[in-house]
Amino acid sequence: MKNIVRRIAGAQQLGIILIIVVLLVVAQAANPQALMPSNIVEILRSSALYFIGASAATLVLVGGGLDLSIGSVFAVGGVAAGIAMNAGVPWPLAILLALVVCGMLGLINASLITWVGVPPFIATLGMLFAASGIVIVVTGGTPRFGFPAAFTDLGQLNLFGIPLLVFYAVIIGVLAHVVLAHTVFGYNIRAFGGSAPAARANGIRAAQMNVSLYVISAVVAGLCGVLLAARVATADPGAGGTGFAFQVLAAVIIGGTSLFGGVGTIAGTALGALLFAVINNTLALTNTNPQWQNVATGVILVTAVAVDHLRRKRRFAVRSA
């Protein structure tokens, strides 16, 4: 029992859990709707897409990479599926096509990083601009709509009163957790992110690693775009963007994933994504100026990275001693 308490108290995500609890208490005090099941469901629904995107982003960051292009690949996913469905392609095939297109974009990112030597920040930033431009050029900025009901049901239906989006998020989160924590691939991701030269010396192939990570990241970002298109029955070329990319990355970092690679958990990322949804919800329920969300995000983000930096310094000091 003592051990369990000590483990909980020592958990790096304890701070986030405390903030979430405090916010919910404040929200409940201001508005009795806050802890009603319907509001909890809304919080989960709000965080679902960000968590799905953040699960893949966690793998990339733990592997020592960075993918900024997820914002525009998000739009590519929704719009590509929309265009295909408008052209009469059956919706399952349209989704598949959209994910293949997104996967190709991920492959381009990986190729630039692995074989051309472009730093991940630059390669994916370039893709962020290029892909968003292509989406606007192809659609002329016009949203796509008029999708089959079976497609929109994917984003709109509930099961036992819980939106399907939440179930997708749980499934993808569990998959990402299993991959990261319980597979050889996951072990290799952590090893590669922790020290790429040491990982290479132990036979981990950088090319294979980068291709896998950036393709997964792009496919999952595209899937988020497809799911949003299903939810709102419209594929908006302006969806995603830097807003989505930065919120996803912030959720991952706040959840305890190190910006320097090698360290991170899907559970932490889930808390990071949940925190954003709770902040937004609390601000709405307490009638607070919504601009405070950005202030809160900034403060929490910097604190999370500072804590990570201090933790690493302490570990280094302990090892050196």
Binding site: Q33, E42, S46, N281, L283, A284, N287
Partner: peptide, 8 residues
């Protein structure tokens, strides 16, 4: 944002 608005 709309969802939160309707809850609040």
């Amino acid at each position: 944002l709309f969802s939160n608005m309707l809850t609040a």
